[in-house]
Nucleic acid binder design. Structure first.
Lengths: 348, 348
DNA sequence: AAGAAAATTTAAAGCGCTTTGAGACGCCCA
DNA sequence: TGGGCGTCTCAAAGCGCTTTAAATTTTCTT
């Protein structure tokens, strides 16, 4: 059933039927009602591609699946983020187009998106420090918004980000107030902007307290469970081990917990842990009382806000960049406590 | 830059240029070379919608984001599955269209997909027992393939699934061989087919061993970390507690581990645990030696196979249904051991 | 060298929709 | 009675591509 046959069935012209269905005022209410009814009865829905060709809109938002180049890992926050964003997009009649790039040729995909008119806008995930995708997208003129920011990029662009620096500064200060002096940082890959900023916050707090950072207590890698486990064991074997861990990911913190329990140590008493909690639906940080003390910010909510902003940008091409900085909550759980008099160490 | 201007720039007709770019044999090699070169030079890419309108293909595969109706949870396997599937789709020139349904009106989306011609095929996730989406899709004639199967659906359809029954039967047998008699099943929601089959495998093994299943040792819910934690504490508080746990999800098993460690119990000695391991990239089950004994099957790989099969179905509409049953490996880790003489119990 | 066959190239129709510019109709008022 | 003005409807062009059917050029055969 297409517009033509529907119009014929109604004894009207295609124009009138199209207008009736798209809410134009030039159609009498009686006609509109009649048309809408028939459309429902015949199960008519306008062909996406024909409509898109005529209107110049794809009603799709592009997103490249974020795989970390090295190990082709899929970020665990991806699912929740997409769920949040696409819920909002759906409300505006948009769907999400997902694509996977062989190699790290993401720029090529964006150029193609533009040339093919495949999407009306793009969401950029996991920006690096000085991410060159931003300049590229500004240049090719495809509406976009970044989930996160990119330190060192001066040109204007739209973004939604968590205040990572502040979150990790506050978390570090909190540990310092509890008397911890040797605080480890288990961070994501520091070429990624969020990790860079978290380290910055951590360093700011140490510096304000007059403490020199110890390179031995800072590490950075893919945020897997195993990474947290390995590094915890390693650090607790140091001559001067940490009494607290600041960890960028819930998943790595599960590894920290495993390492501590392997060693018979109690989290919150022998060793304190603070994590960043993206509030993932399948990896909740406790029900009422959080398991981990955490800087919390829902990535799903970020997806919703970001999608809303992108809709604005697309509907008004001259709209100035939209930026939105979300503050993470510092929620206190049972994984933190006063620094022990004597640091726990690996039995050697 | 569109076909018309490119053709004009080359002094050729649109037809010839189109044919040259699409590899038709009626074009001389010299012309083809010239056209291809110009296309690259001008950065020409055919408009997706125009091409789709002319060919009747969308070059998109639809997928509804699987949110568990109750809590709007995003399945953690989703990310890895999508990564696998879209890699294969990309090789065939397809992208993935993601959409979110308000409510549980998934059927409406498929009808719309079809009526709008929005996608060329569809991937069905997380089938229930007697899932009515299958009949619907067969009826509306949209090519589709199911990730999983649906017990009770008699009509033919294409699917890629892990042999869940066999996997859990073998896992249970393995525990029985180790001397365990009280084996708990921490399962996903049993309206879902995979969970239903896993229970079936578990029950088969018990029956073969002449053991009666104990309802107190079987539970089913969203497979969160907390679910595993709660249930483990609960079951170890029973009068006749289990000595082993069979768990449908790595994430819930992390909760089991936490509960055991809370209680000062050692996994693999006091209590044995076997999990199903989807081999998620951020949640690896150990490097060389698996942490958990597991029935392992890569969901990413399943995504690749499934996408390949869907491509076949789309390219040949008369192709009979494709089915592919994957066997899970039973890999032995350090979470299993002989049944203890005396079951560990919660101190009361 | 002429005619047939093969190799290229082309004009134009069509995919299903939106939208422009114009037409038909009814109504009111001078 | 005729013109002016809303209101409603329509024919047709156009979005950018593919593809059919036909035209043109080149190559081969005798």
């Amino acid at each position: 059933m297409n517009l033509k046959t529907l119009a014929e069935a109604l004894g009207l012209s295609q124009t009138t039927v199209s207008r009736a269905l798209n809410g134009y005022p030039e159609v009498s209410e009686a006609t509109r009602k009649r048309v809408e009814e028939a459309a429902v009865r015949f199960g008519y829905r306008p062909n996406s591609r024909a409509k898109g060709l005529a209107t110049g809109r794809a009603m799709l938002i592009g997103q490249v699946i974020p795989t970390t180049t090295q190990h082709e890992m899929v970020n665990p926050v991806f699912g929740d983020f997409v769920a949040g964003a696409s819920q909002t997009l759906a409300r505006h009649g948009y769907d999400m187009l997902l694509t996977r790039v062989p190699g790290d040729d993401e720029g090529k995909v964006y150029r193609e998106f533009r040339a093919r008119g495949a999407v009306d806008g793009v969401i950029i995930q996991a920006p690096d420090v000085r991410d060159d995708r931003i300049a590229l997208l500004n240049q090719i003129g495809l509406p976009f918004i970044v989930h996160g920011r990119s330190t060192g990029v001066e040109e204007p662009y739209s973004w939604v980000d968590v205040n990572n620096t502040q979150a990790f500064r506050r978390a570090t200060e909190f540990l310092l107030q509890l008397g911890h002096r040797r605080i480890a940082l288990i961070n994501g890959l520091e070429r990624m902007d969020f990790a860079f900023r978290r380290r910055k916050g951590y360093l700011q707090a140490l510096e304000a307290a007059g403490l020199a950072p110890d390179p031995l207590l800072m590490c950075t890698d893919e945020m897997t469970e195993q990474f947290g486990h390995h590094k915890t064991r390693y650090m607790l074997g140091l001559d001067d081990p940490p009494t607290a861990f600041l960890c960028s990911s819930m998943l790595s913190a599960v590894g920290i917990r495993r390492a501590l329990q392997d060693l018979g140590l109690t989290m919150g008493r022998d060793v304190s842990v603070i994590i960043h909690d993206d509030d993932l639906s399948y990896l909740r940080n406790g029900d009422d009382i959080p398991l981990f003390t955490a800087t919390r910010s829902s990535v799903r909510h970020a997806g919703e806000l970001l999608a809303d902003a992108l809709m604005q940008l697309i509907n008004d091409p001259d709209h100035p960049p939209i930026t939105r900085l979300l503050e993470a909550q510092l929620v206190v759980g049972s994984s933190t406590g006063p620094a022990p008099l004597r640091a726990a160490r690996l039995p050697s």
